[in-house]
Design a protein around this nucleic acid. Structure first.
Lengths: 258, 258
DNA sequence: CTGAGGGGAATGGTACTACCAATAAATTCC
DNA sequence: GGAATTTATTGGTAGTACCATTCCCCTCAG
């Protein structure tokens, strides 16, 4: 059964914060705010909108965490240009809350990337192919540095995405890649770099030959291999490790019996 | 050329808000907070963490917009179970900021959904197929109500996603679908509902027959058709329309010459 | 005229207080 | 025993005060 998506009309009393976010959305859409541009100071904005600075700051904080804007003390607030980081935080929570496993993330890649490789073979420009080749070279150069090796591995895949010419999937899967980064790094320590390199070389060659079918096959071959490795590695790992906390949290029961 | 992802180490002074979000992430990860569970009151939490309620509220607001928690006045704050909405807001901003067009969104669908249809033909359970059929029926029943018709159209596709059994892609494309909703509704007013229905029926039949190749073909057929219709319709539309604003915004130049 | 340095103003970050409105549990009343 | 009312709790908003950082302009020395 499908999860109920609740398109319910509960538009009734919206937060001021929510309204503010909608306003910013509109201002961006109509071009009043331009990427890279500077926003008025918080105190001014708050007055303009007729809300308190507290409320405005809540909205701005949301936008900042999502990567829409950047704030710097003593300087100001700026609308970001591209927003690569915009999906990162949400995605991490998604993985936590829905308990999405590395296996599922790899399945998603397996579902999409082969087709994208085929598309890349069809539409890649010479520059795109050169970029893919560069990342391949960077991988070779970083054989001994696992972190670097994996970083360029993922950049290789991003380059393929770029060559396929679809920003939507590219953006989406940059997050998936990022989420898998740590796990892949762990895995790479028990795999011969040359093995990974061989698989990547085949993908590159296929795209370079403009062979759609082979590109698709080679990408599938690589990802199936990676998925199996990853799944085994993941079984030994319980979960992700998050960053430090501020203070100790009183673990009192959240059940105030009133 | 790929966009520079700025992996720069600027971990220096993090916001209290950012730290708090990290704390919540950890609390969720280690199971101290359970989905559906109730969080302590804001005033208590703020004291526990040793931060002001203002700062805490900023963090909570971020989590609420992302769909991680729900807050109700007079009641309390609860950790959500699934977080369906978690990618919606970020995705909308992404589309705005990167200026992603409806055409590109449809291209993304065209890239992914055919393969997913094939996967659905392979892995769909009887219940999955029944669900797809139900949405088909709902479309037929809503021939005259454009909004409803389109809603069930998208639910049909969601059902196929579900049948394919990959939550990651399902979540991602629920956002894409949502973004296209209005535009598709407009388009549907100039298209014979029977035309759309026919294409959907073919997809359903193919999946039901467990024919992967035909499922893929039929989904491609449908989306190519939809894309062309949509692209033509979009050309006449400048942009999206967002919801209302609170008050008039002083359009003063964001260039305080100090 | 040029460059280095200092001071002031503006900005975001945080804390704290006060009050409102909505909610749910406890209480009272019929 | 059930319905209406009261009461305490909770999130929502506004407003103030103060801090640390940053930028800009002005001054002054060379």
């Amino acid at each position: 059964m499908l999860a109920l998506v609740v398109p319910i009309a509960k538009r009734r009393k919206e937060d001021v914060t929510v309204k503010l976010i909608a306003v910013f959305k509109q201002l961006i859409a109509e071009g009043t705010l331009e990427p890279g541009g500077r926003l008025p100071a918080e105190r001014e904005l708050a007055e303009s909108f007729g809300v308190s600075r507290s409320s405005l700051r809540q909205a701005l904080k949301v936008l900042e965490i999502m990567g829409v804007i950047s704030q710097r003390v003593g300087d100001g607030t700026y609308l970001n240009k591209g927003a690569d980081a915009i999906l990162r935080e949400p995605m991490e929570f998604l993985i936590l809350l829905d308990g999405i496993s590395a296996h599922e993330l790899m399945e998603a890649r397996l579902l999409v990337e082969p087709e994208l490789a085929a598309r890349a073979a069809l539409r890649a420009s010479e520059e795109d192919i050169a970029e893919i080749h560069r990342e391949l070279g960077a991988m070779e150069a970083a054989k001994d540095d696992h972190a670097k090796f994996v970083a360029h591995d993922l950049l290789f895949h991003q380059a393929v995405f770029h060559a396929a010419g679809n920003r939507v999937t590219s953006l989406m899967f940059s997050v998936v890649h990022k989420s898998l980064d740590k796990l892949i790094t762990m895995t790479s320590q028990v795999v011969e770099p040359e093995h990974t390199l061989t698989l990547h070389r085949r993908i590159y060659q296929a795209i370079r030959k403009r062979d759609q079918d082979e590109s698709r096959r080679r990408m599938t071959e690589h990802l199936v291999d990676a998925r199996d490795l990853l799944t085994r590695a993941a079984e030994k790992q319980s979960h992700f490790q998050m960053t430090a906390r501020i203070q100790t949290l009183k673990k009192k029961e959240p059940r105030p019996s009133r």
